[in-house]
């Protein structure tokens, strides 16, 4: 009993510690003072209005959102079959391949960003959007392979073989019995990949071009010139967005899907 009480206290403390900055930021978003400060002096929604009035935020959001969706979908298209092949077949050099696919998560983002800048922008002279897409694709692919891969490790492939014996051709069997049983892994990998792409700064910083900014780079740019609570307002909006997505996932799959 005593031990249980102690753990509860620690849990509450950790929770408070994690929540504290978020609460402060949320409060400052409604502050009338022109700089981010706490405690707040008065209540206003002006900063939220400012968010929607600032074109670079709206454009940045649109770009980040589209980029994250497209890059993640592309990565799913490549990553799911790759993860499947890695866990289904005994390929020579499997370990090497696995590590290779994960290497972008180990290299610092700045280094990867700079390398991509050298290659995509300077050598290949690609367009900004294409460059960003390739960069983000590379950043999110390891998450997909990793998370879907660990889902597939749990999957009993005799289930797939059973579908074959019942008359199901291989490709169809993949969609009918493999996919439904790793769907939670796919959703989890999608969320992780989406969030990582959406929040990414180093890659976007190197690959952005004139007039093309993702939301985080637009935010960074804004903070360099202004120190007003508009950024807090954006944070609140993003938090609300995240909570909505979580609720949606919880309603459809159960939140356990993300931790499995």
């Amino acid at each position: 009993m005593k031990k249980g009480g102690f753990i509860t206290i620690v849990a509450v403390l950790v929770f408070v510690f994690l929540m504290f900055p978020l609460v402060i930021i949320a409060c400052t978003a409604f502050n009338t003072a022109p700089t981010i400060s706490f405690p707040i002096q008065g209540f206003t929604l002006d900063w939220f209005k400012n968010v929607f009035a600032t074109e670079s935020f709206i454009d940045g959001f649109k770009l980040s959102f589209t980029l994250a969706i497209v890059a993640t979908l592309l990565a799913l298209l490549v990553g799911v079959p790759a993860a499947y092949a890695l866990s289904r077949f005994s390929i020579k050099g499997k370990k090497f391949l696995k590590n290779y696919f994960l290497s972008p998560t180990i290299i610092p983002g700045i280094v990867l960003g700079y390398a991509l800048y050298q290659f995509i922008v300077l050598t290949l002279k690609m367009g900004v959007i294409e460059g960003l897409l390739i960069g983000h694709f590379m950043v999110v692919l390891p998450y997909i392979i990793r998370v879907v891969g660990s889902s597939l490790e749990q999957f009993d492939f005799s289930i797939e073989e059973m579908a074959w014996t019942l008359g199901c051709p291989k490709i169809k069997a993949f969609f009918k019995v493999v996919l439904p049983n790793i769907s939670s892994g796919i959703v989890a990998s999608f969320m992780l990949a989406f969030i990582n792409s959406f929040n990414n700064i180093p890659i976007s910083m190197f690959l952005s071009g004139p007039g093309v900014r993702t939301l985080p780079t637009a935010l960074m740019n804004y903070i360099e010139y202004f120190y007003d609570p508009t950024v807090s307002a954006i944070s609140v909006l993003l938090m609300i967005g995240t909570i909505l997505i979580m609720v949606l996932v919880e309603k459809t799959l159960g939140i356990g899907a993300l931790t499995k």
Partner: peptide, 9 residues
């Protein structure tokens, strides 16, 4: 199969 391999979903 020994493990039955029923479709869990």
């Amino acid at each position: 199969f020994q493990s039955y391999a029923l479709f869990p979903h």
